[in-house]
Design a protein around this nucleic acid. Structure first.
Lengths: 137, 137
DNA sequence: AAGATATTTGCAATAATGTTGCAAATATTA
DNA sequence: TAATATTTGCAACATTATTGCAAATATCTT
């Protein structure tokens, strides 16, 4: 609970019920969350628009980051430590389980360096692996 | 043109104008295409629904695969050679240019192996890098 | 080559998802 | 506690995706 307020204060965000509740969800979730998950887990006690705006704010502040997906959904997950506002540098692998459909941040697995052909300049890198997670097998 | 019909026949698909046109787009494109790109490049001569269904069919047959993105778009790209129906194993890096917004398959850049924590089993792997491409810089 | 059969397409309706402006409600500041 | 700034929820709208069904088109059979 302390951690919650800490994060919000550090990022100069007003403390509101919505932000507290949504951030709490992320802190308690082992994997990534979609907009729909959040609406479900808050019993629709917040307006859709509020959820959208909260997520957007969190991304801008570097509290959460979004994860690439192959369908048209957007997944968000908590940033570990060193993301500053506007500057994400998550460097870990994301894992999507084909069975339970959860997305997990493998914080300990870092993305290897890749040599690009000349002329290409790298900015962001995302590595997504799908398969079977440690709980489903 | 031959190649076109070949691909469709090999996959036991009826030869229709829509499928020919859309497949042709992929064959002539250096990178990936979004649904919107396809509608634009066909002058809306096909119904949105037809485009959706054609893309879906192509994915199912292993003719194209989709590429993970961090926004809520779906990108499709041609599978090289060895994708069978229902079994994609593209192993190359995808590059999205922040300037021209094009997605390019870097067929020559392969994805390095990644060691997953125990209990995790890898199926598909996707590496997406964004930055500036060789034409924009 | 022409009819019979199977597949695909386009339309219409519907659902799901995301965005914007603005007034009311809530949080922060002094 | 009042003044100010921020956030929320509503309503309306925009975009994107899905489904059923009849008409159109492709394939198969003879």
């Amino acid at each position: 609970m302390d951690q919650l307020l800490d994060i919000l204060k550090k990022n100069q965000l007003s403390i509101t019920d919505g932000r507290k509740k949504i951030l709490e969800l992320f802190l308690n979730s082992p994997g990534a969350l979609a907009h729909a998950d959040i609406e479900k887990n808050t019993d629709a006690s917040f307006d859709r628009v509020t959820v959208y705006r909260t997520l957007q704010t969190f991304v801008e502040k570097g509290i959460i980051h979004n994860i690439p997906t192959t369908d048209n959904s957007i997944l968000y997950a908590l940033c570990k430590d060193n993301c500053e506002a506007g500057h994400h540098h998550d460097n870990h692998v994301h894992f999507i389980c084909d069975v339970c459909d959860k997305t997990i941040c493998l914080d300990n697995v870092s993305i290897p360096e890749v040599k690009l052909p000349k002329g290409f300049k790298q900015n962001q890198i995302d590595l997504v692996i799908s398969g079977i997670c440690n709980e489903c097998k």
